[in-house]
Lab assay of single mutants.
Amino acid sequence: MQIFVKTLTGKTITLEVEPSDTIENVKAKIQDKEGIPPDQQRSIFAGKQLEDGRTLSDYNIQKESTLHLVLR
């Protein structure tokens, strides 16, 4: 499925993911596309910070959902 990741600069990245993917996985995909190390990424969805060990389905993130990426 496709999800979108919006950065603070307003750029939107499209990722191909599975509901079973962990947040860690997703951060690795963002690193592949953007070169941002996962330890600098904070992902926010529906106002909640997403934890690395959880999966997209844990957070009820579905296709075409938009995550927000904040850098630390």
Results as ranks from 00 to 15, higher is better:
Gln49Met: 13
Thr66Tyr: 07
Lys11Ala: 08
Ser20Ile: 05
Ile13Asn: 00
Ile36Ala: 08
Asp21Leu: 04
Glu18Pro: 05
Ser43Phe: 15
Leu8Glu: 13
Pro37Thr: 08
Arg72Leu: 14
Ser43Asn: 11
Arg72Gly: 11
Glu18Phe: 14
Glu51Thr: 05
Ser43Val: 15
Ser57Met: 11
Val70Ile: 12
Asp58Trp: 12
Ser65Phe: 06
Glu16Ala: 08
Lys33Gly: 06
Arg42Pro: 12
Gln40Met: 12
Pro19Met: 11
Asp52Cys: 07
Arg42Val: 15
Leu8Phe: 13
Lys33Thr: 11
Ile23Asp: 01
Ile30Cys: 04
Gly10Leu: 02
Ser65Trp: 06
Glu34Gly: 08
Glu18Tyr: 14
Gly47Leu: 08
Thr12Lys: 07
Met1Leu: 05
Pro38Asp: 10
Ser20Thr: 13
Pro38Asn: 08
Met1Cys: 05
Arg42Met: 15
Leu67Asp: 00
Val17Gly: 01
Phe45Arg: 03
Arg54Ile: 07
Val17Met: 03
Ile3Pro: 00
Lys6Leu: 11
His68Met: 12
Leu67Arg: 00
Ala28Gln: 13
Leu50Phe: 04
Val5His: 00
Ser57Phe: 10
Lys11Trp: 08
Val70Leu: 11
Asp21Cys: 05
Arg42Ile: 15
Lys6Trp: 07
Lys48Cys: 09
Gln41Cys: 10
Ala28Asn: 11
Lys29Ala: 08
Ser43Pro: 15
Gln40Pro: 07
Pro19Cys: 08
Asp52His: 04
Glu18Asp: 13
Asp32Leu: 13
Leu50Ala: 02
Leu56Val: 06
Tyr59Thr: 00
Val17Lys: 01
Gln41His: 09
Leu71Cys: 06
Gln31Val: 07
Asn60Ala: 07
Thr55Ala: 06
Asp21Phe: 06
Leu71Trp: 11
Ile13Gly: 00
Ile30Arg: 03
Ile44Pro: 03
Ile36Thr: 08
Lys33Met: 13
Asp32Tyr: 10
Val17Gln: 00
Leu15Asn: 02
Asp32Pro: 02
Thr55His: 05
Ile13Tyr: 08
Ile30Asn: 00
Pro38Met: 15
Glu24Thr: 06
Thr12Phe: 11
Thr9Gly: 13
Ala46Ile: 06
Gln49Lys: 10
Lys27Gly: 03
Lys48Asn: 10
Asn60His: 09
Glu16Ser: 11
Gln2His: 12
Ala28Gly: 07
Glu16His: 10
Gln49Glu: 15
Thr14Met: 12
Glu16Cys: 12
Asn25Glu: 12
Asp58Asn: 03
Lys29Trp: 04
Thr66Gln: 05
Val17Tyr: 03
Phe4Lys: 06
Glu64Asn: 15
Gly35Ile: 03
Lys33Val: 12
Lys33Cys: 07
Lys29Cys: 05
Thr14Glu: 07
Gly47Ile: 05
Asp52Trp: 04
Thr22Phe: 05
Leu71Val: 11
Asp21Ser: 06
Asp52Met: 04
Ile61Phe: 02
Ile3His: 01
Thr7Asn: 04
Lys63Trp: 06
Lys11Pro: 04
Gly53Leu: 09
Ser57Thr: 06
Glu51Val: 07
